[in-house]
Design a protein around this nucleic acid. Sequence first.
DNA 1: CGTTAATTTGAGACCATTCAATTTCGGTGG
DNA 2: CCACCGAAATTGAATGGTCTCAAATTAACG
Lengths: 241, 241
Amino acid sequence: MFESEVFALLVQRWGKRSKLTADDCSAILALPFTREVYTKDAYLVREGQEARECALLLRGFAFRQKLLRDGSRQIISIHVPTEFVDLQNSLLRTADHNVQSLNRSEAALIPRAALMELAAARPNVAMAMWIDTLIDASIFREWVVNVGRRDARARIAHLLCELVCRFRELPGEDGDTYEFPLTQEQIADATGLTAVHTNRTLQSLRKEGLIQLSSGSLTILDWDRLREVGEFDELYLHHTG
Amino acid sequence: MFESEVFALLVQRWGKRSKLTADDCSAILALPFTREVYTKDAYLVREGQEARECALLLRGFAFRQKLLRDGSRQIISIHVPTEFVDLQNSLLRTADHNVQSLNRSEAALIPRAALMELAAARPNVAMAMWIDTLIDASIFREWVVNVGRRDARARIAHLLCELVCRFRELPGEDGDTYEFPLTQEQIADATGLTAVHTNRTLQSLRKEGLIQLSSGSLTILDWDRLREVGEFDELYLHHTG
DNA sequence: CGTTAATTTGAGACCATTCAATTTCGGTGG
DNA sequence: CCACCGAAATTGAATGGTCTCAAATTAACG
């Protein structure tokens, strides 16, 4: 995927909900950036670090995460291409969490200052960025509910539903089979479970004919029942398209 | 507390991190609003509802919440006076969660349109509002970690630490004793526990001399150890003051 | 001072964890 | 192309933290 394409997809995504003028669009397309490739588990952002640039995912996946003293990890969200991975850190200046690459990924790094100037000069663009961060926040809220009040089956089903909904938005992704980049350990860290229990729970979802999941590929066999098990309602994703 | 005071406190809070001109300030102070009083558990915002106005808390407390099919409830955040309770819903238009009054509270309801116009016309104000929502998001992230990866003692200790830090910012609140408006059931819903287990866990925190909590009043007896138990690091609150 | 909400207590059941070992998978070099 | 390797997935058994269901006690409030 060429960088120009990604910025074009970004403009397209934002254009759906905010009115962007031609000038707004060309100002976005004119943003300076450098490209960076990340290997699996490489850090894009580190907690405590001062934000100097903001990463826009071009290819691959990334996730937010916090580490606890005992070494356990909680994943807080998953990110797909065309998403900014740390607008929050850019505005708040010092990162309060880590961002890691899920698999081999690539990002465009935009200098913080350029992004802030753009936001200050163009209210429409600022609004689009703001809304992006609000949707992130909405997803965080749903995750609080997920890990706080649902049992293992529902947590995992809900996570799978969310990811499928978000993968579907990507160009070239449709049908019922998706490239699925999370290991069971990562699913566990995203749902607040252990890898062992995640494994057993996935088996039960498979045994009941809801999903098929192996070797990096997820097939949804029964979307309605998976939704039901995860008590999934996509309102919180605020997909207008 | 008079409304003029609250808007003044808001301007003061925002002024700490964003540069607000005199014009910005007077535009904020000129916002139209109506006042509304809420009884305990009254709804300020309902999931699925279209946002027509945005509530600024003047007095008392409020909390965000989602309800599950089985009737259980997950509290997602607590809010104190001078905080906007639903900027998120105002921007995203349709509310994806509920907001309830924690005790008897009072809010200034600002028409959505007026707030949006102010944001569009004044980048500094927009930035201040944006940052408010980013700090909310940071708190959501920490709550994902709290309910996802900590045991009952740590979850409750962490919640208490957060609330104390935020109460301290309020005028007239200092020392080690605070008005504490949450029932044990609400603490349970905020930490993803049951009320019964919350009760036993609070007893253990009391028995070890960390806190004193009864009849709506919380005293911190050993801040350092409470922090330790909750693995609390206030970076995520982004208090610049 | 009665009535309801909130807190407290007990006992048993269960979901998820822990720890350890085994098997399978994916990739790499010989 | 096969042998090897580390990572990922899988299995088993025992433990334990938290839940459930009830009932009792205490506090709050009009």
